[in-house]
Design a protein around this nucleic acid. Structure first.
Length: 432
DNA sequence: CTCAATGATTTCCC
DNA sequence: GGGAAATCATTGAG
């Protein structure tokens, strides 16, 4: 059994390895912790378990730092104990951790782990995952697949962190017991004061604290890497689901005269499509530009969605009319196609116009139809039978509809009043 | 592998 | 800040 000194060190191995180094009558000795730590590594580094003689590392030797020791028989740099030394006789501490005041770095790490949901109480879903997902998605609801993916990985990190933490605590206790036993044996040959024991225990705990800090540090790094990967993954393009594309297309083609969804509409669409608001904005931006550039190419698609919308609208109108016992005799839709009752029928009309060429030219008529629709809606509302289904008016009703047509004009009201630009004048950038 | 489609990003403009 | 336009980068069909 070595002398009375204790040196607790950890080496920067994949798994933290704990050593006990003693300085005594027999010189400097190392002891590889045999419990849950170190045994494997000790063997791997050619140290074996138990006690062995340590020799100072020669200055300049690879891996050497001031005060480094290595196993007497091991020349591998892996065997260098870059650790602080606690003198046996006076229990003087050189290089011991100075951790009396709360370490600001430790506090930062703790805060981060808490914020990331790694430490602290377990929450179903984890605020960190939600926060990261929200941040990554531009502040809105995110793709649930990525969300759960991120959450699963974070949970994994969390589990590893807690397992390791538990191991460290257990090892700390074991080690403390071990040292206490050493001291108890020492007390047979020399007087050991309670203060000395207390101090020794304090040293051990501080050492373990610094090891814990490393664990926290690497956990933080893992979370950061995960987050960056998560964000990077988001940058990758992923096609929207067929359903989402359909919903977006339906909106687009039923608002062809003014395909600029309001913020509310965007949010609603985002929700329906399980994508973010910015993705909705991107989609509409891309769609507008691509539609404008090649209207012909999108004609079939436009007709498809127009027909689809018409059918839906017809059904809705039929239902509304049927439900409306006091149907107004002035209702203009009775007996006619019925599709114009759609709040968006103005756009649909334009769609039909576009079959023959430029879709923008039809908006004059489209606007007229729109006004009819508004009248109709007003009438129906007054009779009390029409306020949902077709509703969408808060969400889907096109605003900024203008008589001249053209998307540009819709967003630049100043030019709407321009009498020089007739219905036939197509904005230059609509031509390809 | 090629290439069209398409979601995302960048740049410019108002 | 929102939109247009150009461009980048990935996806998926052939």
């Amino acid at each position: 059994m070595p002398g009375s000194c204790v040196l607790l060190a950890h080496l920067a191995q994949p798994t933290q390895v704990l050593f006990l180094l003693c300085v005594g009558a027999e010189g400097v000795l190392w002891h590889c912790q045999t419990a849950s730590y170190g045994a494997g590594w000790c063997a791997g580094a050619g140290l074996g378990q138990g006690w062995g003689r340590a020799v100072p590392v020669a200055p300049g030797q690879a891996g050497a730092t001031e005060g480094s020791w290595q196993a007497g028989t091991c020349t591998s740099t892996d065997c260098v104990f870059s650790c602080s030394l606690f003198s046996a006789q006076g229990l003087s501490i050189r290089g011991a951790q100075e951790e009396d005041p709360p370490d600001p770095q430790l506090m930062r790490l703790d805060n981060m782990l808490l914020a990331e949901g790694v430490s602290g109480p377990e929450k179903g879903g984890g605020s960190a995952a939600a926060a990261a997902a929200a941040a990554a998605s531009g502040g809105s609801s995110d793709n649930s697949i990525e969300h759960s993916d991120y959450r699963a990985k974070l949970t994994q990190i969390r589990q590893i962190y807690h397992t390791e933490l538990e191991k460290y605590e257990q090892a700390c206790n074991e080690f403390t017991t071990h040292v206490m036993n050493l001291l108890r044996e020492q007390s047979r040959t020399r007087p050991i004061s309670p203060k000395e024991i207390e101090r020794m225990v304090g040293i051990i705990h501080r050492k373990f604290s610094s090891i814990q800090m490393q664990l926290k540090q690497s956990t933080c790094e893992a979370v950061m890497i995960l987050r960056s990967r998560f964000l990077d993954a988001r940058r990758k393009r992923r096609n929207f689901s067929k359903q989402a594309t359909e919903i977006l297309n339906e909106y687009f083609y039923s608002h062809l005269s003014n395909p600029y969804p309001s913020e509310e509409a965007k949010e609603e669409l985002a929700k329906k499509c399980s994508i973010t608001v910015s993705q909705v904005s991107n989609w509409f931006g891309n769609k507008r530009i691509r539609y404008k550039k090649n209207i012909g190419k999108f004609q079939e698609e436009a007709n498809l969605y127009a027909a689809k919308t018409a059918v839906t609208a017809a059904h809705a109108v039929a239902a509304a009319v049927q439900n409306n016992q006091t149907n107004s005799p002035t209702t203009p839709n009775s007996g006619s196609s019925g599709s114009f009752n759609l709040p968006n029928s103005g756009d649909m009309f334009m769609n039909m116009q576009s079959l023959n060429g430029d879709s923008y030219q039809g908006s004059q008529v489209g606007a007229n139809v729109q006004s009819q629709v508004d009248t109709l809606r007003h009438v129906i509302n007054q009779t009390g039978g029409y306020n949902d289904g077709l509703g969408g008016n808060s969400l889907y009703s096109p605003h900024n509809l203008n008589a001249n047509g053209g998307w540009q004009d819709a967003t630049t009201p100043s030019s709407v009043t321009s009498p020089t630009e007739g219905p036939g004048s197509v904005h230059s950038d609509t031509s390809n």
